[in-house]
Amino acid sequence: MSKRIDVEHLNVYYGDFLAVEDVNINIEPRSVTAFIGPSGCGKSTFLRTLNRMHEVIPGAYAQGKVMLDGEDLYGRGVDPVTVRSMVGMVFQRPNPFPTMSIRDNVLAGVKLNNKKISKSDSDALVESSLKGANLWNEVKDRLDKPGSGLSGGQQQRLCIARTMAVKPDVVLMDEPCSALDPISTIAIEDLIHELKEQFTVVIVTHNMQQAQRVADKTAFFNIEGTGKPGKLVEYDDTATIFQNPREKATEDYVSGRFG
């Protein structure tokens, strides 16, 4: 299921404002890539262009190419809804549907895509998705209870299970642990390591230690000042970014001198 992402000369706009400028990056399949950088540098904005969530905002658009195994996700006639089923998104705060059961939360994306599925197939999909999110043993006896009744860390894993149920090629995560306690954070990080066996995983994080723990490669984004566009400054193996970066701005950021 995992696929390669190649981004070429991508510019991201909010109306007339250029928010992210000329990003070129290649993300390998079955890997974890972390985006780091100070607040406002465009890393989350850029992340959302990878499944066309950015253009949900009125007036927002992107120019350039985002290739998924050679297919341009911004090509003529490409359906954004189809793109979002291939490239799933897990958000900063857990967002299970509060009126839905745990089971229905897992199946929500599948039903949203109008996929017909039998009771036996849906039962199997719920179980496999929850097992994939390391949540099955904790909730298997209360699948009909509201998803909102779970703890924060469990809710985030439920949202990951919901993403996995659609069988995407890529999983995007926008600061998935920022609202979680340390124990839940460890559970999500362990899960990220497991997810890369099947998926291409891209994560935005402000946690330098987290990037070092989970990411194979790390991309550092920066911004020159208010009103300026965010830019990709450096992209390399995670160990190189944190121990021997090429750019002084990268070294200053990862060493805590700014940001």
Rank of each mutant, 00 (worst) to 15 (best):
180 L>G: 08
47 L>Q: 05
89 M>F: 13
226 T>R: 13
171 V>I: 15
90 V>R: 11
17 F>A: 15
248 K>F: 00
55 E>H: 06
65 K>Q: 14
37 G>R: 01
229 P>H: 03
5 I>M: 06
104 D>P: 05
135 L>N: 09
85 S>R: 15
185 T>P: 10
196 K>C: 06
106 V>R: 00
91 F>S: 04
72 D>L: 05
219 A>T: 06
27 I>R: 01
222 N>K: 00
259 G>M: 05
7 V>A: 08
95 N>D: 10
124 A>Q: 14
236 D>N: 15
208 M>R: 01
235 Y>I: 02
144 D>R: 12
47 L>D: 03
50 L>I: 10
47 L>Y: 01
8 E>Y: 13
3 K>H: 02
87 V>I: 15
134 N>C: 08
188 I>K: 03
12 V>A: 04
47 L>H: 04
251 E>L: 14
135 L>A: 05
143 L>P: 07
254 V>G: 04
28 E>W: 00
179 A>P: 09
163 T>I: 03
40 G>R: 06
241 I>R: 07
221 F>H: 08
128 S>I: 08
133 A>I: 03
216 D>E: 12
257 R>C: 06
183 I>L: 14
149 G>A: 13
200 T>M: 11
36 I>N: 07
124 A>E: 14
189 E>F: 05
125 L>I: 13
34 A>V: 07
16 D>V: 12
51 N>S: 00
26 N>Q: 14
45 T>P: 08
124 A>L: 09
253 Y>S: 01
165 A>Y: 08
18 L>F: 10
141 D>W: 09
202 V>D: 04
48 R>M: 07
165 A>L: 12
62 A>E: 02
30 R>T: 10
233 V>S: 02
125 L>C: 13
48 R>C: 01
190 D>Q: 13
153 G>L: 04
206 H>F: 03
33 T>S: 03
176 P>I: 06
186 I>D: 07
249 A>K: 14
5 I>F: 03
129 S>Y: 07
64 G>A: 11
259 G>H: 06
136 W>S: 11
52 R>Y: 12
242 F>L: 01
50 L>N: 11
33 T>M: 11
253 Y>W: 05
90 V>H: 08
246 R>A: 13
131 K>Q: 15
213 R>H: 01
83 V>L: 06
177 C>E: 09
34 A>T: 07
134 N>F: 12
207 N>T: 00
43 K>T: 06
15 G>Y: 14
139 V>S: 08
